[in-house]
């Protein structure tokens, strides 16, 4: 299977600074670091949506920023359509950005407050195309129409828009150059419930129409279910389970996935569910447990869990990193 984007053994460590880190390094230990992303591999086929799910601090946003090289990965390779992104110099990378876009989480913070809607959406076109001003005007109008915004909003500033409109502008900016790959970084988590459904449906519709490939990052398994074809679940910088969406939701194998799923509130007061409850809170990414990273919290942990564990394919296309499966 050919892939549009592939990450191999992606690592991002943020070395700690300060006197304590220095002392620990002097003491002969390894230099302490926040191991935000600790060796993950991803593969996205053209036209598909991969959901990347995990709780805050699991490193999913760091993965996104590494893939677009908004931050430099510490190790690993990123291949985009046979181009090695991880080794690309600044200028070619900048030109390639027309194909690599991102929709940001916070619609309030991700729009420049001093730019009107027209200028915000026009900018990628100006940077990446040779269209004339008039042609770009038409293009901007067309893109806004695609995301469901009328031309009367062209000259508005972000603070004059509603939250839902802002997120649509955000999406319009990302798809203006018809990118082939778009990262959606929690695009609905700052929105109200009624808007959430609209944006999810809009994004899915745009993907099929424009033939884009999505990496959908979210902490919310419920929305991922409606948008993603495959889902990868992250915990403490690694992927613990990856499977086609339907399979993951019907047969979750990793205890972490099962715990996440069972913690989601269901709008049905009569629903009977078994809850898998993890103990305590996520350990610090500076001091990661050896072996299986979940073992300090996992209710099913056994002595064998202290041994290192990697992803293996238990059923076709269903990968799990757990000794007990």
């Amino acid at each position: 299977m050919s892939s549009l984007l592939e990450a191999r053994d992606l690592v991002k460590h943020f070395p700690l600074k300060g006197i304590r880190a220095w002392l620990s390094a002097m003491g002969g230990g390894a230099r302490p670091a926040v191991r935000a992303v600790d060796g993950i591999s991803l593969r996205l086929a053209p036209g598909e949506t991969l959901g990347l799910v995990g709780e805050s601090g699991c490193g999913k946003s760091t993965v996104a920023r590494c893939l677009l090289r908004l931050i430099e990965p510490s190790a690993g390779r990123i291949l985009f359509d046979r181009t090695d992104l991880s080794a690309l110099p600044d200028e070619p990378l900048r030109r390639l950005r027309r194909d690599l876009q991102m929709v940001f989480q916070d619609p309030n913070a991700s729009l420049n407050p001093r730019l009107t809607v027209r200028r915000t959406v026009d900018e990628p076109l100006r940077l990446h195309t040779t269209l004339t001003t008039a042609e770009r005007q038409d293009a901007v109008r067309e893109v806004l129409d695609r995301v469901g915004l009328g031309p009367e909003l062209l000259h508005r500033y972000p603070h004059e828009l509603s939250g839902g409109q802002r997120q649509r502008v955000n999406i319009a900016r990302a798809i203006a150059t018809r990118p082939r790959f778009v990262i959606l970084d929690e695009p609905t988590s700052a929105l109200d419930v009624s808007l959430r459904a609209k944006i999810i449906l809009l994004l899915d519709d745009l993907r099929t129409r424009l033939g884009m490939t999505y990496l959908f990052i979210s902490h919310d398994l419920a929305t991922v279910k409606y948008l993603a074809h495959r889902v990868a679940v992250m915990y403490l910088g690694t992927i613990v389970e990856e499977a086609p969406t339907r399979e993951l939701f019907s047969k979750p194998l990793h205890p972490y996935t099962r715990a996440l799923l069972s913690a989601i509130p269901i709008p049905d007061p009569d629903a009977k569910r078994e809850r898998l409850i993890l103990a305590g809170e996520v350990p610090s990414p500076i001091d990661i447990p050896t072996g299986c990273r979940l073992r300090t919290r996992c209710p099913l942990a056994q002595p064998v869990c202290a041994e290192p564990v990697g992803l293996r394919e238990v059923t076709p296309n269903h990968f799990v990193a757990c000794h007990l499966v």
């Binding site: 459904a197 419920a222 939701f249 799923l261």
Partner: peptide, 23 residues
């Protein structure tokens, strides 16, 4: 009714129907 239908659900296979209009 619209609110109940608009939320994504992990426990069932149902479609999400957005609430028409804006607040």
């Amino acid at each position: 009714r619209a609110l109940v239908r608009s939320i994504p659900r992990v426990d069932r296979e149902v479609t999400m129907e957005p609430i028409p209009g804006a607040v």
